[in-house]
């Protein structure tokens, strides 16, 4: 027996560590990554590897040479950012796009604010939005790359054949601009339930399969990495708003099911909006934040010039987080304070 060790209580620690939480997020992303690689092939894998390597390398370099602090790469947060960044890119993007993204995500959005825990905005989303605005053509080039699995499943083959180079949301947006009503677009697009839930081609790499994303969500809940509040409220807000709008004018506005399962809504709600650093702490704050994300997404989709708005809405609500943390306090144990 050595000298006694003395410290304040508690003397034991739970199973969470930053690294274990990030590892769980990575595991939850595995289904989405598998789907991306399966249906977009080696091109997807290439972007993924470049993105992750880029993020980790930049975090290391900045930590080592600019901040001169012990590196924070061992906590795996840079890897998570790298994977999320890649899942937000089209598979047809050239190799340097994820590298530029990595510089923006880690270099600008994360490390300038002081590294992990200090950033105001979700790094992967900052990079995606920057790339989307700077390289609109590359970032919306949804040309299908060669998949690893052969598309012999009939409904999948149908999708590949019918693929017009636009996402479902893009199709609706284009259609409405040329004066076609929503029900007609739906008919032309032939959106089947398989497409909405299982595999939908065209779009960012992470948006292939809603089911894969939901699987990740279940895993995160099971491991208690995140609470269901934010994703559920985001989806519910979108559902309620789109239901109201589509009931008012079904020719102009798309319905809830279509809006929930297309585009980046699930990816955003489950993996981006729940980012610890850039989401509020208290339940009340989280609800307001999630309602904001859902509402802004719907409004951008319906009225904005972009067909998709989840990234923007999350970033906008990110900036409200400090305020939400200040004014939305958790429910205190005791309502009243006794004088004395």
């Amino acid at each position: 027996m050595d000298k006694l060790t003395i410290s304040h209580s508690p003397h034991v620690h739970g199973r969470f560590s930053t690294r274990s939480l990030m590892k769980d997020v990575l595991i939850a992303l595995v289904p989405a990554v598998i789907m991306a690689v399966a249906f977009y092939g080696w091109a997807a894998l290439k972007l993924l590897v470049i993105s992750v390597a880029g993020c980790v390398a930049i975090e290391y370099l900045i930590g080592r040479f600019l901040l001169k602090s012990p590196g924070s790469i061992s906590d795996l947060s840079a890897v998570v950012t790298g994977v999320l960044l890649a899942l937000n890119l089209p598979s047809s993007a050239p190799w340097w796009i994820p590298l530029v993204g990595a510089v923006l995500a880690i270099g600008v959005a994360k490390m300038t604010f002081g590294g992990i825990g200090q950033n105001l905005y979700n790094p992967a989303l900052v990079a995606r939005v920057f790339l989307l605005i700077s390289f609109p053509v590359i970032m919306t080039n949804w040309t299908l790359t060669e998949p690893l699995v052969s598309c012999t499943i009939p409904w999948l083959q149908g999708q590949v054949d019918a693929f017009t180079g636009a996402t479902p949301l893009g199709l609706v947006s284009e259609g409405l601009k040329s004066g076609i009503a929503v029900p007609e677009i739906m008919q032309q697009g032939q959106f089947t339930w398989q497409q909405l839930l299982l595999v939908s081609l065209g779009g960012s790499m992470g948006e292939v399969s809603s089911l894969a994303l939901l699987l990740g969500f279940v895993y995160l809940l099971f491991r208690r990495v995140i609470r269901p509040t934010i994703p559920v409220v985001v989806v519910a807000t979108v559902a309620v708003l789109t239901l109201i709008f589509s009931l008012i004018n079904p020719a102009r506005f798309t319905g809830p099911v279509f809006n929930i399962f297309t585009g980046g809504l699930l990816l955003g709600a489950i993996f981006m909006a729940t980012d610890y650093v850039t989401s509020p702490m208290s339940f009340k704050g989280q609800v307001i934040y999630a309602v904001g994300i859902g509402a802004i997404s719907v409004f951008i989709r319906y009225f904005g010039s972009y067909p998709e708005g989840v990234s923007f809405s999350i970033l906008i609500m990110n900036s409200a987080v400090p305020l939400l943390n200040k004014y939305c306090k958790p429910r205190r144990f005791a309502g009243e304070v006794r004088n004395g």
Binding site: D2, K3, L4, T5, I6, S7, H8
Partner: peptide, 16 residues
């Protein structure tokens, strides 16, 4: 004679 293993502050240590 012992190893203190808490937050490195005299104030915290003295309270322990």
């Amino acid at each position: 004679t012992s190893v203190y293993d808490g937050y490195a502050s005299c104030k915290v240590m003295a309270s322990l």
